Structures are given as structure tokens and as C-alpha cells.
Deep mutational scan, measured.
Amino acid sequence: MDETGKELVLALYDYQEKSPREVTMKKGDILTLLNSTNKDSWKVEVKITVNGKTYERQGFVPAAYVKKL
């Protein structure tokens, strides 16, 4: 869990989004878990840094590609 009590997951593999509802992640990324009720895909939040500014983006990733921490 992070400092706000949200559950975290670790990306086990790289994943490139295939639709606007998904998010891209790299192996080793730590993501905030938002919903894990679907056995196939979990909703997560990723933090992306562009030019020194951090943005948050929500979307789905394959459940088999992440592990709860």
C-alpha cells in the first residue's frame, strides 16, 4: 500500500496499450490498483513524467501482467 492506503501492483512485463481504455507500463513499474474485480484486466493508475511534470492516467492492464504488493 502507498502512503494514502491504496493498494499497489508491480508490473511483471512490459505492456503497450491497445486501446484508449488501457495504459502502457514497463516491467518494474509500480502502479496504484483501483479495481481488481475482473479476473482478466485490472484498472490501475499510472504516473507519467513529461518534461519534469507528473501526470496521472487511469486505464486497464492484463491482470496476469501485474502482481499485488
Results as ranks from 00 to 15, higher is better:
26 K>R: 12
64 A>P: 06
3 E>T: 13
15 Y>Q: 01
64 A>D: 13
16 Q>M: 12
26 K>V: 07
67 K>H: 10
19 S>R: 06
46 V>G: 04
61 V>W: 01
11 A>S: 05
66 V>Y: 01
1 M>F: 12
19 S>D: 11
26 K>M: 08
26 K>Q: 08
2 D>W: 13
20 P>L: 08
3 E>R: 13
51 N>H: 08
11 A>G: 01
47 K>S: 12
54 T>M: 10
3 E>Q: 14
32 T>Y: 10
20 P>G: 09
26 K>H: 10
42 W>A: 01
67 K>N: 04
9 V>P: 00
20 P>S: 10
14 D>V: 04
55 Y>E: 11
5 G>A: 13
40 D>N: 11
57 R>A: 06
5 G>K: 14
38 N>I: 05
57 R>D: 01
23 V>Y: 02
16 Q>P: 04
21 R>T: 13
41 S>R: 14
48 I>A: 05
14 D>P: 04
48 I>K: 06
58 Q>T: 11
21 R>Q: 14
54 T>Q: 10
32 T>A: 08
61 V>K: 00
34 L>K: 03
11 A>E: 01
68 K>D: 04
32 T>N: 06
31 L>H: 03
32 T>L: 14
18 K>M: 10
14 D>W: 05
9 V>I: 07
8 L>R: 11
19 S>F: 07
54 T>G: 05
68 K>W: 07
7 E>M: 11
65 Y>R: 05
5 G>M: 12
39 K>F: 07
5 G>S: 12
58 Q>I: 13
35 N>P: 03
19 S>A: 07
33 L>I: 03
23 V>N: 00
21 R>E: 15
52 G>F: 04
28 G>H: 04
68 K>M: 11
13 Y>H: 09
25 M>G: 01
8 L>H: 10
36 S>M: 08
20 P>F: 08
25 M>D: 00
41 S>C: 15
11 A>H: 03
38 N>W: 05
56 E>R: 15
2 D>N: 14
56 E>V: 15
5 G>T: 13
40 D>Q: 09
1 M>H: 14
32 T>P: 11
28 G>C: 09
36 S>K: 07
52 G>L: 03
26 K>C: 12
16 Q>F: 14
20 P>W: 09
16 Q>C: 12
68 K>H: 08
42 W>P: 00
43 K>N: 04
46 V>Y: 08
57 R>K: 12
55 Y>T: 11
40 D>T: 11
57 R>N: 04
8 L>D: 02
32 T>V: 15
1 M>Q: 12
22 E>M: 04
2 D>Y: 12
4 T>M: 13
18 K>W: 03
47 K>C: 12
33 L>A: 00
